[in-house]
Design a protein around this nucleic acid. Structure first.
Lengths: 341, 341
DNA sequence: TTGTATGCGTTATCAA
DNA sequence: TTGATAACGCATACAA
């Protein structure tokens, strides 16, 4: 492959001139520029990536740190869809900015991320769902590596972008209320997850604002699995009075809940309404099609990418926490109830 | 960040010695090696990626070329799932080999791929589903860039790995036959796709081997969309005699077909059986759960990655076409028929 | 407006 | 067993 030297020779100029033309530096005679460009085309020249990175001290690449679960075999989790949409959003933005996107998995070790950056293999890091380790984030802040987290993080001054779990949840309860429901129950996710806590907080806020209450019997734990949704529903069905609407923190639990209801001889939504969260691909296909909250996955990826690029450019970021609104997708799993006046 | 020079100084040796230690070269005194390693640890040194690439003339990175459709917004297509599984397989293998994986989209221009390689940004290219352009592949072969294609390709001497569409399809027909079906119809995909052609060829082979036939009325075109499956089913239902089993080339068309059957007042599988292809995530969730063929997506990615690494290493490849077996997943959309003796 | 010289951080060749 | 030195290909400060 040709080098800048070959181009210079062919164009009859020095290497510096070629470099100037290639980098759009001013102060090159149009005529000369023309000749150089012609030579570039003729030789099909493209600047060596490594040499440029070495000289410029930047990689023109960012690392996307995907959850360690990515390396594990197929599971129930709609990971594929979620991940793809987020990556797509980030990828499109980075590509526009002429930044390469390198896939890396979450090895959980600080040392690994440090090396990545110190080796200048990447100019910045984008973490997807780095939930559990605020400690690592703290250490990361010690480095000067620009990074952005998708999902919430329990650390100060970390740039992160997330769906507005609190507000979305609050909206769901309001929606249910508008549909005439007053006895609204709730299937939660693991409490160690921010998403669960925030969504639950939104529910509590709405319930309070609306003058309702959330008795313990209506506040069931779950672990995001379909099975746990099913079990939670069993308990919910024994509550007295029975709730008229169930809000599950994710679609898989909602699906489990619907199954449990049906097994108990109840119809959804005629006898009991169910709302999920995520809008996973199967949501429209189950019976009944699931009313749920769609996360702005693509936008999450794109927003995070934009923030990361700004950080790499050294800009001060206006806010360190960006919350994106989610969309309530009405399908058929919620019934409108005549309000009990 | 520290350089090899700093390490050398701290360890009281020359840069060459440090380099030797770092690259596990023989001929270093154990004592010296020890000192160097200690210095490396103390400084938290990691070799500069660009400098190394420049010197070694390789990037230690491969490019994954994803379909251009990736950049487009969410569609019905189960692209997310398929892509994720393939990438996961490839990613895990590359990571083992200490190769970084860079995401790149299919810009369709030969020039782009050429530059990628000539810039030494990647050591090789992995194409996912590069269906339409054998011409580009031919040109790619002209370069000395190692590449492997996932999916079939209409060109000679190209290393590609794919699911064994022909054989899998053949198996489906045998399966249906064993279940007692004799009037088996077929909903095809777009003929320009290899997958469609190969799957159809498998059907024809099986039909012939089993002494059945595939009348024109049983051989319906489709375009992979749910809607087209539905339409094909309408035509199929008018055939006389009506087929007892339908084999659709993908799950979405199968879902469309089931819908059409139900709309026509037929029950699946009691009145008519349906088989799909792909095992998309919704397949187990539809009514009835869909019997279908699961592609070995993860394995496809892993196999392709392995082949690419071999090519990069300059090994001659034993075969230039690798076909992986698919798995028939029996669910509830096929009924066992008493054989008409 | 253009060219010369130097260095980015490694690895590899050759001497010692 | 080790060290000096020369590339790798590019960008830039400075000189012309």
């Amino acid at each position: 492959m040709p080098t800048i030297h070959d181009v210079a020779k062919l164009a009859g100029v020095s290497r510096s001139t070629v470099s100037r033309v290639l980098n759009n530096r001013p102060g090159v005679h149009p005529k000369t520029r023309e000749r150089v460009l012609a030579a570039v085309r003729e030789l099909n020249y493209a600047p060596n990536f490594a040499a440029r990175a070495l000289k410029r001290q930047r990689a023109d690449a960012v690392g996307l740190i995907i959850p360690a679960s990515f390396r594990e075999p197929r599971s129930d989790e709609p990971r594929g869809y979620v991940l793809t949409e987020i990556i797509r959003g980030a990828y499109n933005f980075f590509t526009e900015q002429r930044l390469a996107l390198t896939l890396l998995d979450d090895q959980g070790t600080f040392r690994f991320y440090q090396a990545l950056f110190e080796r200048r293999q990447v100019d910045g890091l984008l973490f997807i769902d780095l939930e559990p380790d605020p400690h690592m984030v703290e250490r990361l802040k010690g480095l000067d590596v620009p990074f952005v987290v998708i999902g919430n993080v329990d650390a100060e001054d970390v740039v992160c972008v997330d769906v507005d779990n609190y507000e979305s949840s609050r909206r769901v309860v309001y929606y249910l209320y508008q549909m005439g429901h007053r006895r609204i129950a709730f299937i939660n996710g693991p409490q160690r997850r921010f998403a669960s806590r925030d969504r639950r907080a939104g529910v509590l806020a709405a319930v309070t604002e609306l003058g309702l209450s959330l008795p313990d019997a209506y506040d069931q734990p779950g672990d995001f699995s379909e099975r746990s949704g099913q079990k939670a529903m069993w308990r919910l069905l024994e509550a007295d009075p029975r709730p008229t609407a169930i809000y599950a923190m994710n679609d898989r639990m909602a699906i489990g809940a619907i199954r449990a209801a049906r097994d108990a001889g109840l119809r959804v939504p005629e006898d009991i309404s169910v709302v999920g969260f995520d809008d996973i691909p199967v949501a429209p296909y189950i019976r009944p099609p699931l009313t749920t909250v769609r996360q702005p996955l693509y936008e999450l990826g794109a927003a995070a990418a934009r923030l990361l690029v700004q950080r790499i450019a050294g800009q001060e970021l206006p806010s360190r926490r960006v919350l994106l609104p989610a969309l309530l997708v009405e399908r058929e799993s919620v019934r409108s109830l005549p309000t009990e006046a």
